[in-house]
Write a protein that binds this DNA or RNA. Structure first.
Length: 277
DNA sequence: ACGAGAACCTGTTTGC
DNA sequence: TGCAAACAGGTTCTCG
């Protein structure tokens, strides 16, 4: 579910909702999460304030008073929702609940349990955290452009679709935004990643940035599970050009050719075979 | 070393 | 209608 724009939207909602609040209690409702909670996590955060909330790739970063950082990943089905507004979330999947001194309640709800929570002792430790250590560049950072993207793709034989899903190449893209970015860049998902160089890489870097920015502006994409921290839905799904649109006409070609769906690496890819080469 | 595919888990949709 | 298969926004492991 949640790719960079969804996580960024949640981060912004949490920043408004709980930055500066003091954590009163952490409640763990089920022990068999994908990874057990870090040892002694409750003791490290209870009684301390959340200074600010940030993001790296698809990870939420809760900066805690005293220097530690709580990391959270939402997996496929995870939600991080404030104050009971789960927008239909099944309460049985409220695995971790944080209550705050002002009465605010933050729920980590994750039906499929692909999400995770981790802990870094300090901001300096973050780059060495096992989940963050090998991530590629942030696509919305200043340094991300066609030149950097081209060098990351150089020599790769795998299809560009698979390369962009690899978080070591670019951090934060997932199935939706890879499909959408390749569409707007006019690049076939089947093209060898290593051949995306020069002007093609430039177009792709620009398309990635544009798609992500538009998606964030729309509050992310709500297909089934994703909601913002407030419980509101995202709206970018209404602006999809190709994702989930098999058989529908390409929105940019007037040839009337339909959007095709293929499977790459076990995941659906949607594209326009006429426009994307 | 690299790439393809399976596995992890639950819920919903699709097809016979 | 009913049941089974397919599918879902991600990541990580194994195998060739």
């Amino acid at each position: 579910m949640p790719e960079l724009p969804e996580v960024e939207t949640v981060v912004r909602g949490l920043e408004r909702g709980i930055a500066g609040r003091r954590i009163k209690k952490l409640t763990l409702n089920r022990a068999d999460l994908r990874f057990p909670l870090p040892k002694g996590l409750a003791a490290r955060i209870e009684g301390r304030r959340v200074l600010r909330i940030g993001r790296r790739a698809k990870y939420l970063l809760f900066h805690i008073e005293g220097g530690g950082v709580l990391l959270a990943h939402l997996g496929m089905s995870g939600r991080m929702v404030l104050n009971g507004n789960g927008n239909g979330a099944d309460r049985r999947h409220d695995h971790v609940v944080l209550s705050f001194d002002d009465g605010a309640v933050l729920r980590f709800n994750d039906a499929r349990r692909f999400g995770l929570i981790d802990w870094a002792e300090s901001e300096d430790e973050l780059p060495r955290n096992k989940h963050l250590a090998s991530l590629g560049p942030e696509p919305l950072s200043n340094g991300f452009n066609g030149v950097t993207l081209a060098s990351l793709l150089e020599g790769k034989a795998t299809p560009i679709k698979a390369a962009l899903l690899d978080q070591r190449v670019v951090a934060g893209l997932g199935n939706i935004y890879v499909c959408e970015s390749l569409f707007w860049a006019g690049i076939s998902p089947k093209r060898r990643a290593g051949t995306v160089q020069g002007e093609r890489a430039e177009r792709l870097a620009r398309a990635i940035r544009l798609v992500l920015e538009r998606a964030i502006a729309a509050g992310g994409s709500s297909l089934r599970d994703y909601v913002q921290a407030t419980g509101e839905l995202g709206y970018f799904q209404h602006q999809f050009a190709v994702y989930g649109k098999e058989g529908e006409p390409c929105p940019e070609c007037d040839c009337g050719k339909a959007i095709r769906r293929i499977v790459q690496g076990g995941r659906s890819t949607f594209f326009c075979a006429r426009r994307q080469k």
